[in-house]
Computed example of a mutant assay.
Amino acid sequence: MPTKARNHNGYLLRWDGHGVLFDPGEGTQRQMTRAGVAANDVTWICVTHFHGDHCLGVPGVVQRIARDGVEHPVDAAFPASGHEYWRRLRHAAVFRDTGVIRERPVSGERMVLDTGDAPFTLVARRLSHPVEAYGYRLEEPGGRTMLPAELAARGVRGPLVRRLQEEGRVTAPDGRTVTLEECSVARPGQKAAFVMDTRLCDGVRELADGVDMLVIESTFLHEDAALATEYGHLTSAQAAAVAAEAGVRHLVLTHFSERYRVEDEHRFLDEASAVFGGEITLVHDLDRIPLPPRRLTGRERGQESVHG
């Protein structure tokens, strides 16, 4: 439930020109205005499940998209089993409708959504909650990072570098064949996962595996672990254990039960820090959290030191 200090859910992930809006709860349209987020910034709406705190903001967001004349497609992912709820939310009031919303119902244990030419893949994975719920994982394709010192050592420069990237091998000025593997290292794509209401399950672990940022619910403290299991939620310690096991770089905790007071916040951080040694953020309304920079490989770090 919203409190005097905290709005309903609503999380926007900015990703290379796209805006992925997760779980717009009641009041999201106004929070977007306060945060300087325009309807035109939204390209995806991803709903994890149809409990009110995760979807009651859909009508306002959709109607704002219509009113502001957004022209680009806005894809909407949601559990297919809740299509009737989506339909009610989508048409909850009288307004001049828009044709840019494209429905992407999710079903099965795991589903890869068609993201077209977006610079990321989007996977939905079923979770464990009293109603059908899904988590989402975004991942950019891997690539290769060129190593200037290795290129220079082989005399590969200018147009030859582009050819090497495109064809995988070139003939250097001295007649040697130079391969892409000799002059570059694999660069893993950045990854982010969004996990809301769920008990511990295989889906949580799959979504979190190796991500740079994990945004995950932390509804209860450890002392209320029995309630967490009963109602289909996680404790802060459980969320942190998932992050530690999965090799997450930045753990973002959210979705705290209203039973706890504002002055209890440090207890969530204390419990998580005892389990996870990486960076942890407890989110507050309108927080902005940067995705960690791409990891450097050992060879990249060596190149960095060589070139100062």
Rank of each mutant, 00 (worst) to 15 (best):
Y260C: 02
D270K: 14
D285C: 10
R259N: 03
R299D: 11
P293W: 04
F276E: 00
F268M: 06
P292A: 11
F276V: 05
E300T: 02
G278Q: 05
R267N: 04
Q303H: 08
L282C: 13
D270M: 09
R295T: 11
E279M: 06
D270I: 02
G278D: 01
E265M: 13
E300G: 01
F276L: 04
E265H: 13
P290S: 09
R295I: 07
E258H: 07
S273G: 09
E271L: 02
D285H: 09
G277R: 08
L296A: 12
L291E: 01
D287S: 09
G302S: 04
H255V: 06
R301M: 15
L269I: 15
D287F: 10
R267Y: 04
E263C: 12
I289P: 02
R261G: 10
R294H: 09
S257C: 04
F256E: 12
E271W: 01
F256T: 14
R259H: 07
R301S: 09
E258T: 09
E300S: 00
Y260Q: 08
R261T: 09
R295Q: 13
D285A: 07
L282Q: 05
R299G: 00
E304S: 12
R288F: 02
A272T: 03
S305L: 14
T297C: 00
F276D: 00
D285E: 11
E265T: 08
G298R: 15
F268G: 01
F256N: 01
D270W: 11
L269N: 02
S257G: 09
R267A: 06
R299T: 14
E279A: 15
P292S: 10
E279K: 15
H284S: 07
R288G: 12
E304W: 12
L291G: 01
L282D: 01
R267P: 03
S273Y: 01
E279L: 10
T297I: 08
L269D: 11
Y260P: 03
E263Y: 11
R295K: 12
P293T: 08
R295M: 07
R259S: 05
R301C: 13
R288D: 14
D287P: 07
E304Y: 10
L286D: 09
V275Q: 08
L291Y: 01
L286F: 10
V275T: 12
A274F: 00
L286W: 03
S273H: 13
V262R: 10
L296R: 12
E263W: 13
E258I: 00
V275E: 09
A272M: 07
I289D: 11
I280A: 06
G278N: 03
V283L: 07
R259A: 06
G302P: 00
L286H: 08
S257D: 10
R288Q: 14
D270Y: 08
S257V: 04
L296F: 15
